[in-house]
Design a protein around this nucleic acid. Structure first.
Lengths: 214, 214
DNA sequence: AGATTCGGTGTACGTTTGTACTCCCAAAGC
DNA sequence: GCTTTGGGAGTACAAACGTACACCGAATCT
């Protein structure tokens, strides 16, 4: 118990991780609802019934993966939000857009399995998993709305306006993430998707700001 | 053979329809990849092996449903595109947006199963089904791009610009369709989703047009 | 040192799965 | 009227499924 072997919980955690990883891998070409407990067990290298020591159903496994995936996604959002170089005064829209899209693209590539999982299960997972993902995405929209509210020129937008805009942006970014996943491995395609996302984001922001100012 | 009984092909077509309908119904809470041939057969009321008389796999059944769903969706697009009253000169952006969103909302409600199927299988279906849906959506984007190109003020946009915009619009409309499906049965929510889509579309159009004109 | 906890194993069960095979019989073709 | 055709029924089977149960052995606790 001193330092070398926390082996009991340690080992359990290792198997748990193996289950999560195996599931992410198997989900790359299928979906949670088409996944059997036995497939997961085989991939992990444990006997089927041992699965229950960690999760009591595929569905609760899915909920754990949602949590994990959004931890990773929120880390990305923090990266985007991190203010630019301290010397600079106000980063332009263009700077914000460029950094945001770059962060999204590289993060999706780095955490491909997590994004793949979310995109897939968001539409087709077990009901509770879908609900959990919808909820998390809504939280992201709210966060983005408060970020936008801090931008100069948005002082007198209503909450509803803010949310309409952030919903559109999140929607476009989710779609971009999907396209990056589809384009995976073809660097030219990936760059095209990123460039398109940049243009779209700029367009949306221009539209939002020039609309609000009548 | 005169008129009363085209019964041979007629009957076959009837069973085929029953299979398609049963699949759409079963897919409402699951997904093609989690669907078994036997479930479908039971729902239809035929013996499992009879399924093969009509499709040689769940996957090809899915492809048939994609075709069928997009026939329905294209009918909607024709409705949107149908020009306003002949007397009127130029319908305003606002008119176009309002009619488009209204058409989308009512059509999604009327063809709930088809849209549900597409939204679900687009992300989680068998690979070939996903590819088929992506292809059809791309066709819709191209159609929309040529529609936009006919609008006054877009004369010197590049093809790429047109496609970036139409991609954004289609993305937003797909997301709106998803939200309508989630909101199904709660009329106030449904109206809110429609209203949000209207605002977003207007925003996007304003952004696109004021961006292009420097 | 002895008792306990618990992650993992092995066996066993009743279901459900996809599919191969043979058979049936009414509509279609001759 | 006899033959052909083809959608559907029925039987059959090996494989994979979720899960219940008894069991094991090493890390943990007392």
């Amino acid at each position: 118990m001193t330092e070398a072997t926390e082996t009991r919980v340690e080992r359990k955690e290792r198997t748990r991780r193996a289950i999560l990883d195996a599931t992410l891998e198997l989900c790359e070409e299928s979906s949670l609802v088409a996944l059997s407990l036995r497939q997961v067990a085989k991939q992990v290298g444990i006997v089927p019934t041992a699965f229950y020591r960690h999760f009591d159903s595929i569905e609760s496994l899915g909920l754990a993966l949602v949590d994990e995936s959004f931890v990773s996604l929120r880390a990305m959002l923090r990266d985007v939000r991190r203010p630019g170089r301290p010397g600079r005064e106000e980063p332009s829209f263009r700077d914000i857009v460029d950094r945001s899209v770059d962060t999204l693209v590289s993060h999706v590539q780095k955490e491909r399995q997590h994004f793949n999982f979310i995109v897939r299960e968001r539409a087709a997972g077990p009901l509770s998993v879908r609900a959990a993902i919808r909820h998390q995405v809504e939280l992201c929209e709210r966060e983005l709305a408060t970020d936008i509210a801090r931008l100069p020129g948005t002082e007198e937008w209503s909450n509803e306006d803010l949310h309409v805009l952030s919903n559109l942006i999140v929607t476009a970014m989710v779609a971009t993430a999907e396209d990056i996943l589809v384009a995976a491995g073809r660097p030219d395609l990936e760059r095209a998707v990123g460039e398109r996302a940049r243009q779209q984001l700029r367009m949306v922001l221009i539209g939002a700001f020039s609309w609000r100012s009548h």
